[in-house]
Write a protein that binds this DNA or RNA. Structure first.
Length: 275
DNA sequence: GGAGTTGTTGTACC
DNA sequence: GGGTACAACAACTC
């Protein structure tokens, strides 16, 4: 499940395979991936002849900057990008193929078909959905303690659900929310508005620390994540609670439990995280 | 074979 | 209308 650290790693590893490559033709096997423009022929027209100049990331979104347009791509649960020689056979779950003028192909594979692609003129990408709804990056100055505290004060939702809300802070998904709350010692069922400033400070700092460490480890591979050159992440070895149910807490030896909050699997140590 | 799994959006409800 | 909750999307694993 690519969250911020995985997308950051994909961006960095995919770069050397795609920068300065020019798109010749595009095949679309599953049109539902393409959200903007809603006509796939128009999508192809906008990208054909364009050269990839830079890769970028905002939250969990990967962005390809071309000469005149930007491709904004979300991988959702299982989306992957890889570069192949065009002679290699297409896989079962390849849904979009960008054929470069040099005979190589950037292929988008997605078992679940949940990923999305939006194309906008350069400069318009942040004015339109999906990027225009996103809150600050965890590493941005805009994600200050004061900003975060004021935002959390305004909502009665569980802190677990609130941290998954990308309009508050962008980049955290289910894995890193559980890890952040464990490290901060905060129970996921606490109401966001009821948290003390000390708790909010701990959550903010642990979110930043956790994501930084995960970026350094090249992301977390639970089932299928690999980066832009096919390597797994290493951060799964550092997880305290996610996927650790029935195991001993690394901090206190209490048994890690799993519950459901807002429809999402949630992992906690009830000894380290009290309500 | 039904439940669980995931992120975001659209929609329904108060 | 804002805040919130949840179905829907899709397919594979257990």
């Amino acid at each position: 499940m690519p969250e911020l650290p995985e997308v950051e790693t994909i961006k960095n590893t995919l770069k050397r395979f795609v920068l300065d490559k020019t798109i010749d033709t595009i095949d679309i096997q599953w049109p539902n991936i393409i959200k903007e423009p809603n006509d796939t022929e128009h999508f192809k027209t906008l990208l054909q002849g364009q050269t990839i100049r830079e890769l970028s990331r905002k939250g969990k979104f990967l962005m390809f900057y071309f000469d005149d347009v930007v491709l904004v791509s979300h991988l959702r649960m299982e989306g992957k990008y890889s570069v192949y020689d065009s002679s290699e056979p297409i896989k079962k779950h390849t849904h979009v193929t960008f054929r470069f003028t040099n005979g190589e192909e950037l292929r988008y594979n997605d078992v679940r078909k949940f990923g999305t692609m939006h194309v906008y003129p350069r400069g318009k990408e942040f004015l339109n959905k999906p990027l225009n709804q996103l809150g600050p990056e965890p590493f941005d100055e805009a994600f200050s303690l004061d900003y975060f505290y004021q935002k959390l004060k305004k909502t009665d939702r569980y802190i677990k659900s609130t941290l998954l809300d990308q309009t508050i802070v962008t980049g955290l998904g289910n894995i890193y929310v559980d890890e952040t709350l464990f490290r901060a010692g905060v129970h996921p069922l606490k109401r966001a508005s009821k948290l003390s400033k000390k708790e909010v400070k701990a959550i903010r700092e642990q979110a930043i620390n956790t994501l930084e460490e995960a970026v350094r480890a090249g992301g977390t591979t639970i089932r299928s994540y690999v980066n832009g050159q096919g390597d797994m992440g290493m951060f799964q070895q550092e997880l305290y609670v996610y996927g650790q149910e029935n195991k001993a807490c690394k901090n206190c030896s209490n048994t890690i439990t799993k519950m459901k909050i807002g429809g999402r699997g949630t992992h906690i140590c009830t000894s380290c995280q009290k309500l």
